[in-house]
Write a protein that binds this DNA or RNA. Structure first.
Lengths: 245, 245
DNA sequence: CGCCAGGTTGATTTCGCTCAAGCAATGTGG
DNA sequence: CCACATTGCTTGAGCGAAATCAACCTGGCG
């Protein structure tokens, strides 16, 4: 069903302290960092490859060095629902590890990625030796829970159009740039299909929404590039459906 | 808008070690338990009262001794969406506390409740003095995240009917009993409106689904009492929409 | 060049919502 | 004790948003 190119074989310890500085791992001592780096296995993944599948046992964590990964579930008809994206610096698979469960979602590579695997046993060791690490993941998990609750809430109480606008505004932080004249430019690393999966709608419906917004002159879509001439008007529409950010 | 009866005033330390034995707090030492009990403020809440509101600052935790609480969000049209229920033994407000956020949902009493408040400062102290406590909440939060992801997934990929059946099967664990002849009996502590809010649909739609299922002879609904003559057939329908439990 | 995947568009259907009325159970005041 | 609101639930008629089904672009690539 999916392309299975590339091979996750090279075994070079490859985490720079630099890279980890801005992540959950920044609290590690240099000794702990060494333990981490000695036990990590780095691999390259091509687009379409899976890092792990739904219902797989959780064997450890995956640190995303580069690329983009979609965490998704598949329904009975084979349709995909994307739960979240993982960007460089993010850690994958920590939820099942901490919950003591198996994976409840799969992770598919969307943009060619470089990823380091950390076996569960080492992670447990680190969690015991460094309580700040656990505290960090605790905070992150609690925040993720808030976002997940919010996704459910929006899915059942907001029309697809407002959810699309919200998604664009969230993506703005990572993929957006402000242009001279105050207009907003986005270049999304997502296909239409992926965006639809994040919204929980069909690609056809997304297509229609895009066209509708385009026709209203609120934004201009060209492939994965989006120009929003008047961000304020979209934000106003968003506020009409939300109370908080 | 809501009835504001009862008064949360009495200040009796009221947590029995017995009660906490089966909760997240069982890992406390007797010294820590004493600290907990000395700083806890117990109150009685009547149906319809709020324990905290959406966007309130998080001042601490609430331990549910008895009763039933609905954690909910309200959309712009005033419609409610119930995110989860809190039963005796559950702790409320730990997510915002651990995430360092304000409340992102309100907590309304559904069945008259007895609830103990624990100030944030004491909780932080306990988290530092007893790492097992943090580990327990970490696990619980990670599990809750899995369930929240699943709710979103179901909301966008399953029809309301299947979600209703799933809800009944989840409620079975707490509100159900098996009758002699293999049929299943449920007595729900929820109004129709509450059930609809949990499914993210309107009460009218729920009413129609109930009638439909009743007409098919799959179950008999009478007020909050439900008799399911052939649970297997409902479970089969559920499996047709899910792969995992 | 022909193929194919990703995207768009149109026609139609369907599921759940809205609006409105009706009904039973409960409560309240005269 | 009865007349009358109130509340929770159900039912019906009509509507609308998104899904479905099917055709048709479009651009990249062997």
């Amino acid at each position: 069903m999916t392309t299975e190119t590339g091979n996750p074989k090279d075994h070079t310890p490859c985490l720079s302290t630099n890279f980890l500085k801005e992540t959950d791992w920044s609290v590690l001592s240099s000794r702990e960092f060494q333990l981490l780096n000695e036990n990590v296995t780095c691999s390259e993944y091509g687009v379409g490859e899976y890092i792990f599948y739904e219902a797989d046992p959780c064997k450890g964590l995956y640190l995303v060095k580069s690329g983009l990964i979609a965490v998704k579930k598949i329904d009975i008809e084979g349709e995909q629902v994307i739960l979240r994206l993982a960007n460089p610096g993010d850690t994958l698979g920590y939820r099942p590890l901490l919950a003591g469960e198996q994976h409840r979602a799969g992770a598919e590579v969307i943009k060619a990625a470089s990823i380091c695997f950390l076996p569960m046993a080492i992670m447990r060791q680190l969690l015991i030796s460094n309580h700040e690490l656990g505290a960090g993941f605790l905070k992150r998990t609690a925040q993720a829970l808030g976002e997940a609750d919010n996704r459910f809430f929006e899915a059942v109480s907001l029309p697809a159009r407002v959810r699309l606008i919200h998604l664009l505004m969230i993506l703005r932080e990572r993929c957006g740039s402000l242009i001279d004249d105050g207009s907003l430019f986005l270049e999304l690393p997502l296909t239409r299909r992926d965006m639809a999966s994040m919204l929980g709608i069909r690609p056809e419906s997304l297509s229609r929404l895009v066209r509708e917004i385009e026709n209203e002159g609120l934004a201009h879509f060209s492939g994965s590039k989006i120009t929003i001439s008047n961000p304020a008007s979209l934000l106003r529409e968003l506020d009409a459906g939300l109370h908080q950010l």
